[in-house]
Measured scan of single mutants.
Amino acid sequence: TTYYDVLGVKPNATQEELKKAYRKLALKYHPDKNPNEGEKFKQISQAYEVLSDAKKRELYDKGGE
Rank of each mutant, 00 (worst) to 15 (best):
E37D: 12
A47K: 00
S52R: 08
D5V: 05
A47P: 00
L7M: 05
K42R: 15
Q43N: 06
D32N: 12
N34Q: 07
K55T: 14
Y29C: 04
K19M: 14
E17L: 05
V9K: 01
Y22S: 01
P11H: 11
K56Q: 11
P31S: 06
K33V: 15
A26I: 10
Q15I: 11
Y48Q: 01
G38Q: 13
E49G: 07
A21F: 02
S45T: 15
N34P: 06
P31Q: 07
E37H: 15
G8N: 08
Y29F: 08
E39Q: 08
G8S: 04
S45R: 14
Y29A: 02
E39A: 10
N36L: 13
D53R: 03
V50R: 04
N36G: 13
G8L: 05
K42H: 11
N36D: 12
K42Y: 13
K20W: 11
E65S: 12
P11N: 07
H30G: 13
L51H: 00
T2F: 09
L18Q: 00
T2G: 06
K62W: 06
E17Q: 09
V9C: 08
K19D: 15
D53E: 04
E49K: 09
K10M: 12
Y3N: 02
L25F: 04
S52L: 06
K40M: 12
E49F: 10
R23G: 11
D53P: 01
A47M: 04
G8W: 03
Y48C: 03
L25R: 03
K40Q: 07
K24I: 13
R57W: 02
E65T: 14
R57F: 02
K19C: 13
K62M: 09
Y4I: 01
V50I: 11
I44E: 01
K19N: 14
L51G: 00
V6Q: 05
K40L: 12
L51I: 03
L27K: 12
V9S: 02
S52F: 07
K55A: 14
A21T: 04
K24R: 13
Y4M: 01
E16C: 09
N36M: 10
R57T: 02
H30N: 11
E58W: 06
L25N: 02
E39P: 06
E39T: 06
A21Y: 02
A13F: 06
K19I: 12
D53H: 05
L51D: 00
K42I: 11
E39W: 12
G63N: 13
K28T: 09
L51E: 00
T14S: 11
K40D: 04
R57N: 03
E17R: 03
K20D: 14
Y3C: 06
Y3S: 01
A26R: 11
S45I: 14
N36P: 07
L59E: 15
G63R: 09
T2Q: 07
V9Q: 02
A47Y: 04
K10R: 11
L25C: 05
Q43V: 10
P35R: 08
D61N: 05
Y29G: 01
E17T: 05
Y29N: 03
A26D: 03
L18Y: 01
K24P: 02
V9G: 00
L27M: 13
K24M: 12
E65V: 13
K56H: 06
N36I: 09
E37C: 14
T2L: 09
P31G: 10
K42S: 07
E17N: 03
L25W: 03
A21R: 05
Y22A: 02
E37N: 14
Q43D: 07
E17Y: 03
E17V: 05
T14K: 05
Y3E: 01
Y60P: 03
N12G: 08
G38R: 14
D61M: 02
E37M: 14
Q46Y: 09
L27E: 15
A47C: 02
K56C: 12
L25K: 05
K33C: 14
A47V: 03
V9W: 00
L7V: 01
K28N: 06
L7K: 00
V6H: 05
Y4K: 00
K62H: 11
N34F: 09
K42G: 06
K40F: 10
G64M: 15
R57C: 03
P31I: 05
L59G: 06
L27C: 12
K19E: 15
F41K: 02
G63W: 14
Y60R: 03
Q43M: 11
E37I: 06
R23S: 13
V50T: 10
Y60A: 03
T2W: 08
P35Q: 08
K42L: 13
K33S: 12
V9H: 00
S45E: 15
N12R: 04
L7H: 00
P11D: 05
K56R: 13
A26M: 15
V50H: 05
